[in-house]
Design a protein around this nucleic acid. Sequence first.
DNA 1: ATCCAGGCTCCTG
DNA 2: CAGGAGCATGGA
Length: 314
Amino acid sequence: MKRMMREVHLPRRLRSVVWFMETLRIKPRPPFSFERTVRRLFHLQKSGYFVRKGILYRTLRAKGRPFVVEIGWQAPFLQFRIHQAVTPEERRELKEQLRRMFSADVDLIPFYRRAEQDELLAPVVRKRKGLRPVLDPTLYECLIKTIISQQLNLAFAGTLIDRLMQLAGERVEFDGESVCVFPTPDRVAALSYEDLTRLKFSRRKAEYVIDISRMVAEGALDLEGLRRRSDEEVMETLLPLRGIGRWTVECLLLFGMGRPDLLPAADIGLRRAVQKVYGLAKRPGEEEVRRIGEAWAPWRSYATFYLWDAITGG
DNA sequence: ATCCAGGCTCCTG
DNA sequence: CAGGAGCATGGA
């Protein structure tokens, strides 16, 4: 193992001969801007993403086994490197996950045409050509992260997510340190509420996270099966669950499934962005955001995502 | 110090 | 059924 880690630091021209350095290449549909798409992930450095020596990494799971994936760009390819030996089945699953996560097959042109018809949205979108939403690898991970993020500022939410990963996620060796992968439902289901309140989750939120994890672990809730259902059916299925409101389902459809036409109108970030871009005197309410957002259909998710990008350091 | 964060539940009148 | 308190912490 020690020898393998040392070889990773060989000069670049020699790296390609290192047998265990598996490389996956995905050609995203143009236009694709790697810089714009990963910028927020670099900045985040939480929730499964981390940066070492200026390179972005993500922990993922394939066939139940945790991996660290290096994320890079070799035009016109997204290039992923795995510093571990990988079976063909694991390789296939990782590639499939990454293709979906980076929205690599989405045709942005119809969205850009739509955005041009809203003169206030158009410049925001034009400036971000090639930006794509980066999805979570599983619906479970997305749902739990979204619940944790309810009402909290992004920094604190990220801290709580990291603490949950440290507590319950499996570890994987990377370059001499041990990093965490997002825990599976059964590992979170095995926790007690007190385990999470100790991490400074509110009592309520600890209950939501663990109760939902138990439902998934016991098979009472089939999240991945929801991919085959319509937006409305997903909403109907999840809304009755304690801790899940409309905003949470909208975020799951958007960041979990990459559905193109969701509008999380209650979202404070979106409301701030709409206020700024549309020059409103005061912060718009949910209904006003929905009214303005009608002009973006059927691309409201993408408009939302681009507007978020416009107020978070963009 | 006070207010607010990528909401939701639950209680009150 | 509309409205509002409470949540847990940290940064502005």
